[in-house]
Design a protein around this nucleic acid. Sequence first.
DNA 1: GTATAATAAATTGTACACAATCTAATTGTA
DNA 2: TACAATTAGATTGTGTACAATTTATTATAC
Lengths: 151, 151
Amino acid sequence: MPEPLESDRYAALRLENQLCFPLYAASREVIRQYRPHLDALDLTYTQYITMMVLWAEREISVKLLGQRLYLDSGTLTPLLKSLEAKGYVTRTRSESDERVVLVRLTDAGLSLQEKALSVPAGMRSCVRLTDDEAATLYKLLYKLLTGEKGI
Amino acid sequence: MPEPLESDRYAALRLENQLCFPLYAASREVIRQYRPHLDALDLTYTQYITMMVLWAEREISVKLLGQRLYLDSGTLTPLLKSLEAKGYVTRTRSESDERVVLVRLTDAGLSLQEKALSVPAGMRSCVRLTDDEAATLYKLLYKLLTGEKGI
DNA sequence: GTATAATAAATTGTACACAATCTAATTGTA
DNA sequence: TACAATTAGATTGTGTACAATTTATTATAC
């Protein structure tokens, strides 16, 4: 059996053969596209998806929020303090279990949802995929996200 | 014309209707999977893809490196200093244009490629996509990455 | 030939990410 | 009921990301 060509031995270490690299780069590029739209709301992208959970839930623990967003308390604690400083959420210990911090949407946070409608509206023209391509990408990303830990 | 249902007015602001969120979350999850494999090389993921470019190019300017990786000097300068401190690269000003910093692979950096073969080998079992799915995902991600700026 | 513009990195400041550790509260159990 | 184990957040430290600014160098315009 012949050895693989010298130029092929390291094929798996070439940037153009990685799946993760375009995943990582595309993620940052799309978030970069969001920035000007989010600047009008004084939100970062991570703060924006946090607000999405709160617009749906009104109230949620830091732990559950972290499970939804795949983020831990090291990221969420300062981010939630920042949202609290902006007046969009409150953070209070649960009465029934003092370990738990409940994050609650304020009236100002709820009002922000109306203004935030401009964000997906403004982003629509940025993603140049057909509806079919977007649907396929969506499915594959969730398969990667939820199925990668093994059986 | 009837108003849309109240529950649908904000459909575009629901986390489950975002394409960007699974992109962002999957990117971080896959990079998290890389970590234990990269720890053996004392490299972060960003340092790893930087080394990939250098394994292919041997020498490259910071500017070109940034274009390849979609990263700017604010990210690359400290990262390259770190790789220099580990002994994997050198950074020297170009003689023909003193503005340009050339990053060069050292012998130790080249040797690291052999050890790095274990990384894609170890990762293969982590991504639970078929070859077809991976190929489709790869194409869609590059379309998103290169085609999103408009015509 | 010098003022001006453009370019490449570096620096600064803000905000994530995340591993590791710490603190306080709760639960399980002998 | 003590008390070890578990749990939820907060904290600490390191390493990105990236906008904005600065510095040094090169290109150009006149």
